[in-house]
């Protein structure tokens, strides 16, 4: 019995009966006032359009009937749920509504007029770090034993020069030996940041190393190394546009919230605290 009483469904039913009975008592209406639901042509067209976007064809007669009766059922439940106040204090409803309003304000930002060339150029100039081309390397690497002394192999490779076939030497067969025109972040993804930093320092055209990496150590021959540069607006217009749009979107969202916030006076009433330790952390 105790378990029965603690069932949420039981709470719901009991509460529902009470509310219903109370509503009957205070209301002068007929016991079952008839509410009206009109499923108009617009609505039917809307239902059919959603169906067509899902299935890539219009609904047939019985499918349309199904859509309509499902809509009616949903509408009735929706209205009844609202009447019972089930939307109140429901975290999903609250967050969903918040999200809808956020979408709305985002859409608003998206309708801002397209940025001019001058604005794009200014944005590019203000944030060179975001648009700089990456340093790129072409290099060959030979994995060597981290603890061993690779001096002999290094001497041998230096002797053999830049055209040497490295396949007889070193370990790690799954790690690619030749890397052509690879950007620094991609090198770092594979070999780690320290390795990439060293690639930027050591001389070109001669075997160097050992250089430590995320795998161990390597002898390295760099054939090319391009410097970072800021591209012209012409070549990266779309990227700059997207970045600026993103910045504006965030700014607009902030402004939007702030202006809403201004219309509220917020009072926070903490329960009486015995000590500051009552709220050790916010989680």
């Amino acid at each position: 019995m105790r378990k029965f009483i603690s069932e949420p469904l039981v709470h719901f039913l009991v509460l529902g009966t009470v509310i219903f009975a109370a509503a009957q008592l205070v209301s002068d209406d007929e016991p079952f006032a008839v509410n009206e639901i009109v499923v108009g042509a617009d609505r039917i067209e809307g239902l059919a359009t959603v169906f067509a976007r899902t299935w890539q064809r219009p609904p047939n007669e019985s499918e349309l009937q199904g859509l309509i009766s499902e809509f009616v059922r949903e509408e009735i439940y929706y209205r009844e749920a609202l009447a019972l106040g089930l939307d109140q204090d429901d975290i999903i409803v609250r967050r969903r509504l918040r999200q809808k309003l956020e979408f709305l304000s985002e859409d608003l930002a998206a309708t801002d007029s397209a940025p001019t060339d001058a604005e794009l150029a200014a944005h590019l100039e203000a944030h060179p770090d975001r648009f700089q081309t990456e340093v790129r390397f072409s290099f060959v690497q030979v994995p060597v034993d981290e603890e061993g002394d690779p001096g002999e192999l290094l001497a041998l490779l230096r002797e053999a020069g830049t055209d040497v076939d490295t396949s007889p030497y070193g370990g790690l067969a799954l790690l690619e030996r030749e890397h052509h025109n690879v950007s620094a972040p991609k090198v770092a993804m594979q070999f780690g940041d320290n390795f990439t930093a060293r690639l930027s320092e050591v001389p070109l055209g001669q075997w160097q190393g050992p250089i430590p990496s995320s795998y161990g150590a390597h002898l390295v021959l760099i054939s090319e190394r391009s410097a970072a540069a800021l591209p012209s607006l012409e070549t990266i217009r779309e990227r700059v546009r997207l970045d600026l749009a993103d910045v504006r979107r965030q700014r607009a969202a902030k402004r939007f919230y702030e202006s809403l916030r201004q219309r509220y006076q917020v009072t926070v009433e903490f329960p009486n605290r015995t000590s500051d330790a009552a709220y050790p952390e916010a989680s």
Partner: peptide, 23 residues
């Protein structure tokens, strides 16, 4: 620690939009 090479955002949909219409 290092970037991924690709990602699929696999969410659910429905929502609303009004401003593009207005715009």
């Amino acid at each position: 620690s290092r970037p991924l090479d690709f990602l699929v955002v696999a969410d659910h949909s429905d929502g609303m939009g009004f401003f593009p219409l207005l715009f």
